[in-house]
Nucleic acid binder design. Structure first.
Lengths: 128, 128
DNA sequence: CATAAAGTAGTAATGATTACTATTATGAAT
DNA sequence: ATTCATAATAGTAATCATTACTACTTTATG
């Protein structure tokens, strides 16, 4: 599916630096916008290709927020509540012990995404 | 975002029955295919609209598998491993106590999706 | 330097989902 | 039962993130 990087190109370095410099999750399109400032002719396909290669190699991490992929400089875990009524996504302060899960399952893990499905407090209070 | 059903239509009943009768998760497109056998002129948009309304009302559940939405007759929880190298999705026999999570967070929950991020055994053994 | 393979730019295609619009069906009030 | 406002539908077009394709360029290596 994803290919492993074999050559270290200028475009790959630009993409990597942008993800590393970012303080918050960034989308492929945002990386594209920033990359074009340094390298105006870089193409969106190249940005996607390099982001995916960097994920494969473990240099950056990725997770889906809503419908779009977001990229992070480091392994990343999060918990969200997805309200089935309003469809909104809420960040939830809940932590899973990745170490414990890795132990129980015998898997090598970098991070997790926990999507809780239910009804948010606002929608619940409206008695819908 | 999603609208709440106010009228009980034939199309809604057809969609609901198909999801209820299914033994396994079903996509909107599959529901559309089955619905057309009973109601040849039903439109895909109507299938989507009714599926979403049924989710909002809590009569059925939904979760994303890869890039597509899947629908289930009952609240549904699952754990998957997403391999960052090959991109494949593996079902993992790990259960989270939803009751415990609900207690800790104070939320009303129907189910969860836990996406573990790491490297699958096959890719790990290839030493990539 | 030569050369094969990997990467890139630019553009077109994909595919699930949503939006739009004219028409039809529904349910509450008369 | 008939009327009537409005919710829902069919059919089609549009979105939009992501991937695929192709001719050209760059890279690593003998």
């Amino acid at each position: 599916m994803n290919s492993y990087p074999t050559r270290w190109t200028k475009q790959m370095k630009v993409v990597l630096d942008i993800v590393y410099d970012g303080k918050s999750p960034i989308t492929a399109d945002q990386v594209y916008g920033l990359a074009r400032k340094q390298m105006p002719r870089i193409s969106l396909g190249t940005v996607y290709r390099n982001l995916n290669r960097l994920v494969v190699s473990g240099l950056i991490s990725e997770s889906k927020v809503g419908t779009v992929q977001c990229f992070y400089p480091h392994p990343y875990s999060n918990t969200h509540l997805e309200c089935r009524v309003c469809g909104r996504l809420y960040s939830v302060p809940f932590d899973l012990s990745l170490h414990q899960v890795a132990k129980e399952t015998g898997l090598t893990l970098d991070g997790y995404e926990l999507r809780l499905k239910g009804v948010c407090k606002e929608c619940a209070s409206r008695c819908i």
